[in-house]
């Protein structure tokens, strides 16, 4: 099991404790309200992933052989899901990120948030995370 899969399983386990959608969403809202490691100077258009409704800003840094991701959204629900995605993808190697399959979103019943309407920009965010990983991999040769 890669460490990306391991973190995903942990999240699925954690969220399975909630008995209904309200508890689950309240948890996401709490996550969304938490302070996050995001430098506001990156809140500009070149880091913006435009959803139709909520906005997501994303940047990445390389630490040794691992990548860390930092993201922010103007909507709390989106920010809560972002926190989960960051948990999954941060401090992972480029290869693990590139080869990862994102199954936890479906398992925790949040797939509608990644729907084709692209309302919240999360789908594009995941794509952008992989593009960052490919970029860092190429740079490292």
């Amino acid at each position: 099991m890669t460490s990306v899969e391991k973190v995903q399983n942990e999240i699925v386990e954690e969220l399975s404790l909630f008995s209904d959608w309200i508890e689950k969403y309240e948890y996401l809202i709490e996550l969304g309200k938490d302070e996050i490691d995001f430098n506001k100077k990156f809140m500009k258009d070149e880091f913006l992933i435009n959803g139709c409704q909520s906005k997501v800003w994303l940047y990445a840094k390389q630490k040794n052989s691992k990548i860390t991701f930092h993201a922010y959204s103007d909507a709390i629900m989106t920010k809560g899901i972002i926190a989960l995605l960051i948990k999954v993808f941060s401090n992972q190697s480029p290869d693990d990120i590139i080869n990862s399959k994102l199954e936890f979103i479906d398992k925790i019943g949040l797939k509608s948030h990644l729907s084709a309407t692209r309302a919240n920009g999360l789908m594009s965010m995941i794509k952008q995370i992989k593009i960052y990983a490919i970029g860092f991999k190429e740079k490292n040769g």
Binding site: I22, Y25, I29, Q53, A75, I76, M77, T78, A119
Partner: peptide, 20 residues
């Protein structure tokens, strides 16, 4: 409060509105 957040929660309660 962001309009998207309201829309998502209303949807879970069965209410269809437009947001955006």
């Amino acid at each position: 409060v962001h309009h998207y957040d309201i829309g998502v929660l209303l949807d879970n309660m069965g209410v269809a509105v437009r947001t955006g």
